[in-house]
């Protein structure tokens, strides 16, 4: 398997962030913090690993992507636009009446979305079901799934974890977005998740911790899970920072869901543009 360079992955992550801003600003606000912090992992998955056909999003043997923390829909949509599954113009219509781009992931409306989510705690179970289904059909499909740390207070997450280990679902590669922030405080303060690596290990998973914005570390972890199957599901715990990629968002005490005025939009885009220059992105790569 040929893997992409750090620069390519970071450039794609930046373009995903820009698309997130485009979508959220189209409705003057939305779930920004937990969308931005997924840009890096989505860049790695969609650049190097996930097997989809942008022209045939419903290709039966595609790999699945399930974002259990459904409010990060804008991050997935932006990634799908980057891959050409949906058109970029669609990002301009988030959450409006009759919109085909709902704030929470909706598989009825958006091609490339494999599960409708928004009720927290349920996505990992759907992913586990899809992974078991792929095993039964011997389709060779993989299932990627991203869960949140706050939503891991839901018992259903741990029921799914036990199920996946019991059925030896090594075709599931899940990610825990460990940003330690939820709506009303830090996860540590509200309902501590403890040591998630040890927890998933205890449930019978392979588990590893990487920095959520370290694209090469994420790439290495996913590649290892794919190249070295051991009849266990894999949990890659991403130590993330909510709002990552835009300092002016990152530094806000509660950036879970923000209203966006033109000033804030300008500030964020300015930051992203500076980063584009650092990454030697040409004008056409950026716009």
């Amino acid at each position: 398997m040929v893997l992409s360079s750090q620069k390519t992955l970071e450039q794609n992550a930046l373009r995903i962030r820009k698309g997130i801003i485009q979508a959220i600003c189209s409705n003057k606000g939305g779930h920004i913090g937990g969308s931005l912090d997924l840009a890096d992992v989505l860049s790695v998955i969609y650049t190097d690993f996930i097997r989809i056909d942008p022209q045939t999003p419903k290709w039966d043997n595609r790999d699945f992507m399930i974002i259990s923390k459904g409010h990060a829909g804008p991050a997935l949509y932006s990634t799908l636009a980057l891959k050409g599954v949906i058109d970029y113009s669609r990002l301009n219509n988030l959450n409006n009446p009759n919109s085909l781009l709902p704030g929470h992931c909706d598989r009825n409306k958006v091609p490339g979305v494999d599960a409708t989510t928004g009720s927290l705690g349920q996505g990992l179970s759907i992913a586990v079901g899809a992974a078991l289904g792929a095993k039964i059909k011997d389709s060779g499909q993989r299932v990627f799934c991203i869960i949140g740390d706050g939503e891991s207070a839901e018992g259903q997450i741990w029921e799914a974890a036990q199920f996946a280990a019991h059925y030896k679902l090594d075709n599931i590669i899940a990610f825990l977005d460990w940003n330690n922030m939820q709506i009303d405080g830090s996860v540590e303060e509200v309902m501590s998740i403890g040591d998630p690596m040890k927890k998933f290990e205890a449930f019978g998973w392979n588990s590893t911790l990487v920095k959520g914005d370290d694209v090469l570390a994420i790439q290495k972890a996913i590649n290892f899970a794919i190249e070295s199957p051991n009849k266990k599901p894999t949990m890659i715990v991403l130590k993330t920072i909510k709002g990552r990629g835009a300092k002016c968002i990152e530094e806000l005490p509660n950036n879970h869901c923000l209203g966006f005025n033109d000033d804030l939009k300008e500030k964020v885009l300015e930051e992203l543009k500076e980063r584009a220059v650092e990454l030697d992105m040409e004008e056409e790569q950026w716009n």
Partner: peptide, 9 residues
């Protein structure tokens, strides 16, 4: 207290 995202239990 804030119990987190944990309704049924």
């Amino acid at each position: 207290t804030n119990v987190g995202i944990y309704e049924d239990g």
